[in-house]
Amino acid sequence: MNNINNAFTNGKAFIPFITAGDPSIEITEQLVLQMAEAGADLIELGIPFSDPVAEGEVIQGANIRALSGGVTVDRIFEMVKRIRCKCTVPIAFMTYVNPVFCYGPEKFIRNCKEAGVDGLIIPDLPYEEKGEIMPFCTKYGINLISMIAPTSKNRIRMIAKEAKGFIYCVSSMGVTGVRENIGDEAREMVELVKTVNDIPCAIGFGVSTPEQAVKMTKFADGVIVGSAIVKIVEKYGSECVPYVVEYVRTMKNAIKTM
């Protein structure tokens, strides 16, 4: 059983996203450890990419800051190894297909296994192309997380049937970023998934407030929050840890007993 399943055993899951290396690899390490302590159920760690086409401005900025700080895939693997000496929180990498492909898919996935990474989210690797990475994920026991979007419609059954770990439900159209209103499409997606696969569904894209998280976890198994946290990191830089921790605690408390 993959460690990711443990993310959904303590009430509704709160899944924070941060970009590794923003503002530095040391701060990222502290953030992971302390977010886990504050109640984060799974941590989504972004491996920065020069051209993140699924990201809005906030996370684009984090990618630029991390890359100009000199972070590389190898340094991120080393950091996860250090974290794993102290903490068992489930960790999923979020990155684009090119950094994985250029590193060598098998080497990348093997290193994930060795470092203690549990899952992989690759937004530009849709169902049709997952053969690029999937055989190695199966071989090394890493969950390749499937995404579905409001436009997926007739594709949801096909994707859900083969999904592992959890399903990342994109709440609304467009790229990542804080939104005021999230539509009801998310609920329909989750309900459809559950008819074909009893797999946890977490809602991402646009979630930032406890009220939104509560609304989403009425039907979903967890929420993923990226831009709202990355904004805090951007604002406070290397002083960000206590502010992020406070935010994570508030969000987890809001949904814990849902």
Binding site: P126, E129, I148, T151, K153, R155, V170
Partner: peptide
């Protein structure tokens, strides 16, 4: 070649 794009765009 191929279709390496976000799920959001696949049906498009």
């Amino acid at each position: 070649g191929g279709q390496y794009i976000p799920e959001t765009l696949m049906n498009a």
